[in-house]
Nucleic acid binder design. Structure first.
Lengths: 260, 260
DNA sequence: ATTTATATGATTGACTTAGATCATATAAAT
DNA sequence: ATTTATATGATCTAAGTCAATCATATAAAT
């Protein structure tokens, strides 16, 4: 019988991470562990193959080890659907020949994933995020540049004075930034070194796009990254009503509402 | 019919490394690649399973090398012992407070591995090699910097004009370089973009150390990286005699001979 | 509330793989 | 040189896997 969509997704996510930890599972084991029939197991695997998370073998399936950095983190987090949508919309802003900057953070990993699935010709992507760079490195027709800097173990991100300096050599048509919170005053992050780097990037940008899912609404943290006046575009799944309730008033061309 | 034992062993070794690079192979492909019958393929796989090099799946086999990049590269390459020794010696040149550059290449991965196992306090390591940076990112008391630049998919290396420019912001106490060949005239590499980047690094170096195992002796490729006059130190397992035979004459303080 | 769409498990037949057995050629032992 | 041991490929049967089809229960859409 038909079953709720979110349950299906949850099961497939679980299957993917099950495979990620086991590297390989025979079909039989997939059935047992998830308590589903062979038919459903096959269908789930087929779906995961289409999203490139898994490789089918005769009699089982392999985790696609490459993506595990990115997509493993993906699954653990909240609002993955909203982020996927934000990612797709962000990619739709890109045009051939552009130079863009992609920030660190899980939302931006979704942009990278969207870009991998629907590549833009002759695009130059700059980032300070290693997993993101590695995700995009394989995409044909794309130039991936890493900003140099101090490697932060936990976040796999490059930062520091050297990184801020390196950014000066660039001009970005589009800059996509993530953040931890947004409120009436603007957009917030908590790490000072991250913020100063993001500011350096904004300094080289023609157009600044913020990508924030609805869960960020109403949070203020230690550092004000940018006031709304410096944000050219906000991509969010938060409905306009909720924004207004938080006294975030943006002009219509300053906002793309993905709440529908 | 019965076949020489050493041939069998060679074939199985080849199969193991074939699997290591492909991660998974269906039985059919094993037969095709090694040009053997199904029966023999099954027997070979069974043997590799017993020595724990491989895991059988229904219809194929998985490599059991749970590899990190580094340890996998290790096995694939020639002269791993020599490179390990070179790596250890290179690390012994490092002192607390220094800033050093580590080049890309397998020999340098051994340096990184050696450094991970015997960390040097308060050391700044700069590199353009992603796997190397990732290897060292976890080491406590170490600052790892990546040079920014264009990401080359195949080698996981950062290069290009931007990279050469970024290097100018550094001063290195020690620079460790690898190369593809050495002869009377000096040290050689084949990729022009690699060489121009290495030259940029050398320009910022107090002291330049070349790390070349004996297999590189006598090879000249397209690009002359450096003449011997610009090499401050050579770390090699090639015996002095062999160097002299190739008309490489270095002063005693210009050479560390690891051939013993 | 009713209709539509679909996710599921069962079944079936074609195909693939596994493992055992066997004849044979040839390496290794004597 | 002769004998022994064994690595190989062919063949055959049992068991496993796959893709397609179908009835059905239930989520979504209206």
């Amino acid at each position: 019988m038909k079953v709720a969509l979110h349950l299906v997704e949850a099961r497939r996510t679980r299957l993917a991470s099950l495979l990620a930890t086991h590297r390989y599972l025979p079909l039989r084991q997939v059935c047992q562990r998830l308590k589903i029939s062979e038919a459903t197991a096959r269908r789930d695997l087929k779906a995961l193959v289409q999203t490139r998370k898994v490789t089918r073998t005769y009699g089982g399936a392999l985790s696609d080890y490459n993506n595990t950095f990115a997509s493993f983190a993906d699954r653990q987090q909240k609002a993955p659907r909203a982020k996927t949508r934000i990612g797709r919309t962000a990619v739709s802003l890109l045009r051939s020949g552009m130079t863009c900057y992609l920030d660190a953070g899980t939302t931006m990993l979704h942009c990278a994933e969207a870009l991998r699935q629907a590549p833009v010709e002759n695009l130059t992507v700059v980032t300070n995020n290693l997993p993101l760079a590695e995700t995009l490195a394989e995409v044909p027709g794309l130039q991936v540049h890493l900003i140099g800097g101090l490697l932060l173990k936990r976040q796999s991100v490059l930062l520091g004075d050297k990184a801020c300096g390196s950014v000066k050599a660039w001009k970005f048509d589009l800059v996509f930034l993530g953040a931890e919170g947004m409120s009436e005053r603007g957009v917030f992050n908590s790490q000072a070194d991250v913020v100063s780097f993001q500011r350096a990037v904004v300094g080289q940008a023609q157009r600044v796009v913020l990508c924030l899912d609805a869960s960020k609404l109403g949070h203020e943290t230690t550092e004000l990254l940018l006031p709304w006046s410096k944000v050219d575009l906000l991509l969010t799944d938060a409905p306009s009503k909720a924004l207004l309730k938080n006294k975030i008033a943006l002009s219509s061309n300053q906002l793309i509402d993905l709440s529908t």
